[in-house]
Design a protein around this nucleic acid. Structure first.
Lengths: 206, 206
DNA sequence: CAAGGTACCGACCGGTCAGTCGGTCGGTAA
DNA sequence: TTACCGACCGACTGACCGGTCGGTACCTTG
């Protein structure tokens, strides 16, 4: 009754373990500084085992990103499909995103950071899939808002990019050190996006 | 009358050449992929010469960043010190920034990209100096805007961070591929920042 | 039980790169 | 002229890292 050192024939579990290990390492360091040995050790396999499942370090990185993107797409689609005002839907989308664990939220930033180490097809894949995913979801909501008259007519694309940029202020690492509660910040950002920062000249009774 | 192969006794010129070479290489690649040999060759010195002027690759990177920051601080201070409305001053600051050569504008992005390869004092130095420099200048202008009643009362810091985030949409690499003229985008961003995206309920005659 | 296949191992290799070090060369002061 | 010094050179090294490969353990099928 010797203890089985490793469960065989669960290659998907192993691959998933490798991806998870890679993810947390890549998040806290950067692509070049994370070695395949470190990933293997953290995933409790050897380098040989790692290369049995993934053709290269780059491919492992891309696989990790695409796996994560897939889980997020579901989240995005919930808010996009939801009914309600534009503001409610944007708030929902953003709040859902904010409630993700730190590591998940960091991945968007990862792509921006490491994109230069890739080239060709993989680079395009990463940019298109990751960099444009959130703005595209937001754009669908914003376009509805314009159509329904909740938002002033204008370029839906630049508006959605602006919104994403504002949200990134809220979720950013630096921001966490400077500001307090994220939900208060989220309201700030929504108010700014809808009504702007200018003083209301109506001498408001608000 | 043998051609003097190199002018000696101009160590500052040499150091400046090394910094310039490092800058343009770091901008178009990333920290790990730029080798000290490449920098040396581009600066027309040998690696030994490079290490005569800089103690390490990291220190060279930091020196480069701090040198650049110094030149930008002057730019920022012009707009900060200028008189005029809040919107005019913000527009001036942003436009000045947009008129810088691409390479200069990219440096802010560089820090975000490479920051994880540094640690300890150097990391702090980079973040504090670079990441916070622009928001701080903007915050001074925004605070004035609130005091003068041009902006609604609120948290000047989160507003200034928001403005910087919006500007980054305008100056970003991705944006260049998706949108057209930068000056038109700048107006868009300023309008959004001051007045928001919501439709005006006044049934405007605008 | 034999035969083949798949998951996994770990020592090893080729190449790369930051950093070193003994030395050269030109200017400068005595 | 000599003695010295700082600028600069460039071959070298030691460590590291992505990727390979021959092998082993275990499972499945017939």
């Amino acid at each position: 009754m010797k203890a089985q050192t490793k469960l065989r024939n669960q290659p998907e579990a192993t691959a998933a373990r490798i991806i998870a290990a890679a993810r947390s390492l890549f998040v806290s360091s950067n692509y070049a500084d994370v070695t395949t040995d470190m990933i293997a050790k953290a995933a409790d396999v050897t380098k040989g085992g790692l290369y049995h499942h993934f053709a290269s370090k780059e491919q492992l990185y891309v696989s990790m990103m695409l796996a994560d993107l897939d889980s997020k797409r579901r989240l995005f689609e919930q808010a996009t499909a939801m009914s309600g005002s534009c503001r409610e839907r944007l708030a929902r989308l953003t709040r859902d995103f904010l409630e993700l664990p730190d590591e998940d939220r960091e991945l968007t930033r990862l792509v921006r950071r490491d994109i230069n180490t890739f080239s060709g097809a993989e680079r395009d894949q990463l940019v298109r899939a990751y960099q444009l995913a959130l703005p595209e979801q937001v754009e669908a909501i914003v376009a509805d808002g314009i159509k329904d008259g909740e938002l002033a007519p204008g370029d839906a694309r630049i508006l959605s990019w602006s919104f994403v940029a504002l949200v990134e202020v809220v979720i950013g690492r630096y921001a966490d050190q400077v500001f307090g509660s994220t939900t208060a910040r989220l309201d700030h950002v929504l108010d700014l996006f809808f009504h702007g920062a200018a003083a209301k000249p109506t001498g408001g009774t608000e």
